[in-house]
């Protein structure tokens, strides 16, 4: 894994790699180099499988983070590339020509985060939600509890307990041990 990163580091701008495990590494790359790195990983380094393409909403920094996770089946290595996008613009670069499955991920991101990928097939069609007119629901400025309270009727009589105090009261009076 480290050899691959050394090899890439000569030619591309890589951020500090974060090793979650020996075979799982996250690294931030520049957006304009993403395509070149992905292509090289796929064709030269043997990362043939796109495991995941997902997004994180960094609302405080006004940014979206796209995570492209690619996997080398033979060497059992997983490398995740992070790309930061501007939150206002929210336009990514499609990679459906590298991995056809990416088109589905991009449709999902379009619907759930509102990140659009120009050129990706059927990206503007409905994916899971039908007739959704509100904010994309996975954005953090979309409050799902407030939305559900304003949309669906509650049944009166529902109470909420704090799990810790509730369980202490009903089942485990002497928890933590000796605290009585």
């Amino acid at each position: 894994m480290r050899h691959i990163l050394y090899r890439l580091k000569d030619r591309y701008h890589l951020g500090t790699p974060v090793f979650q495990r020996d075979d799982l590494c996250f690294v931030t790359v520049k957006r304009f180099e993403l395509r070149a790195i992905l292509t090289e990983l796929r064709d030269v380094e043997g990362f043939t499988h796109l495991t995941l393409l997902t997004a994180v909403d960094w609302i405080e920094e006004q940014q979206f983070q796209l995570t492209y996770m690619v996997n080398n089946r033979v060497a059992n290595l997983t490398l995740a590339l992070r790309v930061m996008l501007d939150r206002e613009d929210a336009t990514g670069d499609t990679i459906h020509d590298l991995w056809p499955t990416a088109a589905t991920y991009q449709r999902e991101l379009r619907e759930m985060f509102g990140i659009t990928f120009p050129g990706s097939p059927r990206v503007d069609e409905e994916f899971i939600l039908e007739g959704w007119t509100d904010l994309p629901p996975y954005r953090r400025d979309f409050d799902t509890l407030a939305y559900s309270q304003q949309t669906y009727n509650d049944r009166p009589g529902r109470v909420t307990h704090d799990p810790k105090t509730h369980m202490q009261k009903t089942l485990y009076a002497d928890y933590p041990k000796g605290a009585k």
Binding site: L129, P137, F142, T144, L145, Y147, S148, T151, Y152, N153, D154, R155, G157, R158
Partner: peptide, 18 residues
């Protein structure tokens, strides 16, 4: 009955008898 664990979900209904 009342939404259950999906009580704060944006796309599941809470009361079927509505």
């Amino acid at each position: 009955i009342n939404g259950g664990m999906y009580w704060d979900s944006y796309n599941t209904i809470k009361r079927l008898d509505d």
